[in-house]
Computed example of a mutant assay.
Amino acid sequence: MGKSLHPKVKEFKGFVKKHPKIIKDVRNGDANWQDLFEDWYLLGEDDTRWDKYRTESEKENEKTSTNSESKGGWMDQVGEMVKKMDANQLQQHINSLSEALGTVQGVLSQFQSGNNRGSGTATKTEAPSKPSHPFSFRKD
């Protein structure tokens, strides 16, 4: 009995002690330790899979902590920035972005039409003879 437990097993035992409802589920046969450990190991302690085992006070603490943090990621941050922006400023930014995109499209269309006009019929006949592979391999 001199074996010590793996550190992750010790962490899982601590997690189970914080959530006694897990023990009840295992004893009732609704869950088994192996599956619970694997889920805990892969998903982590904060996953929604553990919500049914949390007490009401833990759920409230989690809600307040996630509201202060940015759990939703960058989309929430963008949403907050849009809320803080003035509507006129937002319209100006959208207009300038639209103009910039229009300019880029115009430049690209000029390059495309320039390539088609300058190429003539010589490249049109050469195009089918080129290999369809993007890489050419040569023998030494």
Rank of each mutant, 00 (worst) to 15 (best):
S57P: 01
S96Y: 04
F111L: 15
A31D: 14
S109T: 14
D47Y: 07
P7A: 15
N116H: 07
G79N: 03
G114E: 06
P128F: 08
Q112M: 10
D140S: 12
Q105I: 08
A87C: 03
S119H: 07
E11T: 04
R54A: 06
S113H: 02
D51C: 03
S68E: 13
R27D: 10
K83Q: 02
D86N: 06
H19L: 03
K71Q: 06
S136N: 05
E58Y: 05
L108R: 10
E45P: 00
Q34D: 09
F137G: 01
G14S: 12
E56C: 00
E80P: 00
K13H: 02
G29S: 11
K8P: 01
V16D: 02
S119L: 13
S129V: 15
G72N: 07
R27A: 12
V104Y: 07
N88D: 08
Q91N: 09
M75G: 02
V26W: 01
W74L: 15
F135C: 11
E99H: 04
T123P: 00
P7W: 12
M75K: 05
D39H: 05
F15C: 04
S136F: 06
S65G: 04
G106C: 09
M81T: 02
H19Q: 03
V78K: 01
L43W: 10
K59A: 08
F137H: 07
S109L: 05
Q77I: 03
K13S: 06
E126L: 09
A122M: 04
K52I: 14
G102Q: 05
T103E: 13
F37V: 10
K52G: 03
N61I: 10
Q105N: 13
F111E: 12
F12W: 11
W74P: 00
K18Y: 01
L90W: 13
S98E: 15
K13W: 01
K10H: 11
K124H: 09
F37R: 08
Q34S: 09
L5M: 14
S96Q: 13
A100R: 12
W33D: 04
V26I: 13
M81S: 03
T64W: 04
E11M: 03
F12N: 08
G44F: 02
G29H: 07
K139G: 07
S4M: 12
D30G: 01
K63N: 05
S70Q: 10
A87K: 11
G2V: 07
N88H: 09
T48R: 14
L43P: 00
W50S: 07
K63M: 11
S65M: 10
H93E: 15
K13E: 14
Q92S: 07
T103I: 02
A87S: 11
N88R: 09
K124G: 12
K71T: 10
L90M: 12
D25A: 08
D47S: 12
V78D: 00
H6C: 08
M81R: 04
V9K: 03
S113P: 00
E58D: 11
G72D: 06
I22V: 10
R117W: 07
N88G: 10
S113L: 14
S4K: 14
S132P: 01
S109P: 00
